[in-house]
């Protein structure tokens, strides 16, 4: 078992309740949930690998492929929708040549949608890594993306 996983597991008890927190920690460490991680978690928490996959694939947070260097999340909350969030997503999909939930071939960007970032009054918003951009327009976003390598 790789050391980081061992370290993460040691911070949690062996109760099934810890499954989601463990997965969250693993994703924080690696950016995604690998088959190897699932195997380690399975042995520690005594939950079958299949069940772990079933649980993790239920939640939008977890991904099973390596993420891009930068994560672009388009908010599609109601406020953002009525102010053109969907258009932003379309533009990104077209611009980056990937679908929502995928990563560009050069691993530069991973694109996701989020239900709501809670910044509705500043809609539409887009989150790139930890930064939240408010009142985004198609052209502003195009410019913004250039800053991320």
């Amino acid at each position: 078992m790789p050391e980081p996983i061992r370290t993460i597991l040691a911070k949690h008890s062996r109760e099934p309740d810890e499954l989601i927190p463990v997965l969250q920690d693993v994703q924080k460490e690696y950016g995604y949930i690998s088959a190897e991680s699932v195997r380690g978690i399975s042995k520690y928490l005594r939950i079958s690998e299949n069940t772990i996959y079933g649980v993790s694939s239920f939640y939008a947070q977890f991904r099973f492929t390596e993420p891009g260097r930068h994560s672009v999340k388009v908010c599609l909350g109601t406020a953002c929708h009525v102010r053109g969030g969907a258009t932003l997503l379309e533009m990104l999909e077209r611009g980056l040549g990937i679908h929502c939930g995928e990563t560009t071939e050069d691993k530069r960007f991973g694109l996701d949608r989020v239900a709501c970032l809670g910044c509705c009054a500043l809609s539409p918003v887009v989150q790139i890594d930890k930064e939240i951009y408010s009142r985004v327009t198609v052209n502003k976003l195009t410019e913004q993306l250039k800053e991320y390598e």
Partner: peptide, 21 residues
């Protein structure tokens, strides 16, 4: 972990227990 349905009480409990919500 990103599931709207977990606002529902029983789904929320399931999620805390480490299950699908």
């Amino acid at each position: 972990a990103g599931a709207f349905v977990c606002g529902e009480e029983t789904a929320l409990i399931g999620s805390i227990e480490g299950k699908r919500g």
